[in-house]
Simulated assay, not measured.
Amino acid sequence: MKTQFVLVSLLCAVAPLASACVAAEPTDIDPASAMVAGELVTLDEIEATGPEIQATPSVPAQTFLFPRQATPFGASYEDWAATWWQWALAIPKAENPILGGPCELHQTGDVFFLAGTTGGASTRSCTIPAGKGIFFPIANHIYKNCPEYVGQMANYTCTDSMDVDLLHDRTLLWATYDKDLLLEIDGVPVDGLDEYNAHSEAFTETSSTNVADRVFPACAGPIEANSCGVPVGTARAVVSDGYWAMLHPLPVGQHQIHFAATIYRPGNPFSLDVTYNIVVTP
């Protein structure tokens, strides 16, 4: 008999905001990002140790999500990914939703943004007006221009530090790692998440000039003093890659959005598990 498996725990931490330039020390800089660690057990093991678990049937992604190639609310998934990053990076650390700040702040337009975490599991509550699309990363990653790090990273040159093509190449490398992705809407698992990868064009990094307000202090905001002759204050370019969900507006009432991911970077996997208890108001 074929063995069946159930994903019973995701010890995760979506780190939607990791980049080659987010590191405590320049020697630790690496372009990897968000990941989720999961534990698989057989149904036989579950039945031997506790009550039987009935799996909820999964549904195609388009049951809840706009199609991957659609332009929901007038923009592509790639464009929404860039806009999401600019929104997330610009919010002061003290109230940033990535760190558990109020989700209702800094929301504008027809689309409501949700955030992951920089690591670990999180359960959050959120009120969303009816009629809003809901956009968030299941797992994502950025890579930035960082001329400040030239001389501190091996084989990282001034040319490399301002090369947008290199940003694309490094960010795409992250997408080649093995991964597990999970999305559940009101307890219903969603299939086909691998198709929801989106790779952005380069966009401007929006972190504050005040280091204390940044979610990621290093290599953030406008370019600072460097040995490459890049003028201080020059806009910093960023490229993103990730797996994203743009939900159709949810009906008025209570809902739950649960997403998790594990990216198996060799030797250093990274994880996330986020639950949002949502109230959609008229």
Rank of each mutant, 00 (worst) to 15 (best):
107 Q>L: 09
108 T>R: 09
108 T>N: 10
111 V>C: 05
112 F>I: 15
113 F>Q: 11
113 F>V: 09
113 F>N: 13
115 A>G: 11
115 A>Y: 01
115 A>V: 04
115 A>D: 06
118 T>Q: 05
119 G>Y: 01
119 G>E: 00
119 G>N: 05
120 G>D: 07
122 S>L: 03
122 S>C: 12
122 S>I: 06
123 T>Y: 12
124 R>W: 02
124 R>F: 13
125 S>Q: 14
125 S>M: 05
127 T>M: 14
127 T>Y: 13
129 P>N: 04
129 P>S: 11
129 P>I: 10
130 A>C: 07
132 K>G: 08
132 K>Y: 00
135 F>T: 12
135 F>V: 14
136 F>E: 04
137 P>L: 07
138 I>R: 01
139 A>R: 03
139 A>S: 14
140 N>K: 02
140 N>W: 04
141 H>G: 07
141 H>R: 03
142 I>W: 05
143 Y>S: 12
144 K>C: 05
145 N>W: 00
147 P>F: 06
148 E>G: 07
149 Y>C: 09
149 Y>G: 04
151 G>I: 03
152 Q>S: 15
152 Q>L: 14
153 M>T: 14
154 A>E: 15
155 N>G: 13
157 T>Q: 08
157 T>D: 12
158 C>S: 12
159 T>S: 10
159 T>L: 04
160 D>C: 08
160 D>R: 04
161 S>H: 02
161 S>Y: 12
161 S>D: 01
162 M>H: 00
162 M>G: 01
162 M>A: 10
165 D>Q: 12
165 D>N: 15
165 D>R: 11
167 L>I: 08
168 H>T: 13
170 R>F: 00
171 T>I: 05
171 T>H: 00
171 T>S: 08
172 L>K: 12
172 L>Q: 13
172 L>C: 11
173 L>R: 12
174 W>G: 01
174 W>D: 07
175 A>L: 14
176 T>K: 13
181 L>Y: 02
181 L>T: 10
185 I>W: 03
186 D>E: 09
186 D>C: 13
186 D>M: 10
187 G>M: 04
